[in-house]
Design a binder for these strands. Structure first.
Length: 254
DNA sequence: ATGTCACCTGGTAGGTGA
């Protein structure tokens, strides 16, 4: 089983690239973030024609998530139950016996801002809800744009980024609390090339200089960990014309 | 170099968010 996550930064702009990527990679499940589409504009017909069913949950201008799957997605949940923030950030469903939560974590802007506090609150709510989900669905994957670089290995310049957004102790503590549920960062189950990033700023020629962060993560539950066969970042779409600023991350399960 | 991209409102640019 192959699962993937990609922050497409506008599905209206990136649909052709998504269809190319699906055709070339044939994932069983793919979650998308920052579709930036209201539900009536979601391109479900083009995606169905390519061979994937879709569940989607969006809003105007910001956020928006989707879950594509080869086989049917059941027990679909939108957002974090009990945490009503009105923003389209999470879509969860069961596919082929695996509970899959695709998430677009808040950016958080900067430490000390209201958006930063909201990010921490949101992460606490996600943790509390996933604890309940895991009890019911031991085979669970949480994947998406976490907007947190868990470790200094995940940052091209850890000194410059120390204490900055995506790299604060508070955000990293919240990621550790998610891992404390019995989840593991699948990317780090394997030897990886140093300087592996999933996001590069559009500015400053950051991709050319390989100045990025690894903020797109795939966490798997203990029950699934023995089945993990690989976890890789696909930099190829970042080399496209009009790329997303994020690269897809791919997990294969036995 | 606060250096790009995407989207909005309401316009032939400026603001917001990332």
């Amino acid at each position: 089983m192959k699962l993937a996550t990609w922050n497409v930064n506008s599905l209206a702009v990136r649909l052709p690239q998504l269809l190319d990527w699906l055709a070339a990679n044939q994932p069983d499940v793919m979650v998308l973030q920052e579709t930036k589409l209201t539900d009536d504009k979601f391109p479900h017909a083009a995606i169905a024609e390519a061979g994937w069913q879709a569940q989607w949950f969006g809003q105007k201008t910001y956020n928006g998530v989707a879950l594509l799957s080869k086989s049917a997605a059941t027990e679909v949940v939108r957002n974090i139950p009990g945490f009503a923030d009105g923003l389209a950030r999470v879509i969860t469903a069961t596919v082929d016996g695996v509970r899959i939560a695709g998430a677009y974590f808040p950016n958080g802007q900067a430490p000390g801002t209201d958006k930063f506090e909201y990010k921490l609150q949101w992460m606490r709510a996600l943790r509390d809800w996933l604890e309940v989900e895991l009890a019911r669905y031991p085979k669970l994957v949480l994947l998406g744009d976490f907007n947190v670089a868990p470790d200094d290995r995940d940052v091209y310049d850890p000194v410059a980024w120390a204490g900055q957004i995506h790299c604060t102790d508070e955000e990293r503590d919240q990621v550790r609390k998610l891992l404390g549920l019995g989840l593991v960062d699948a990317f780090r189950l394997f030897d990886q090339p140093p300087k592996s990033w999933s996001w590069w700023d559009y500015r400053n020629l950051a991709f050319r200089r390989n100045q990025g962060l690894r903020i797109d993560l795939i966490l798997v539950s203990e029950a699934l960990k023995p089945a993990v066969q690989s976890c890789t970042i696909d930099k190829a779409p970042r080399k496209n014309e009009r790329p997303s600023d994020h690269a897809p991350v791919v997990l294969t399960l036995a």
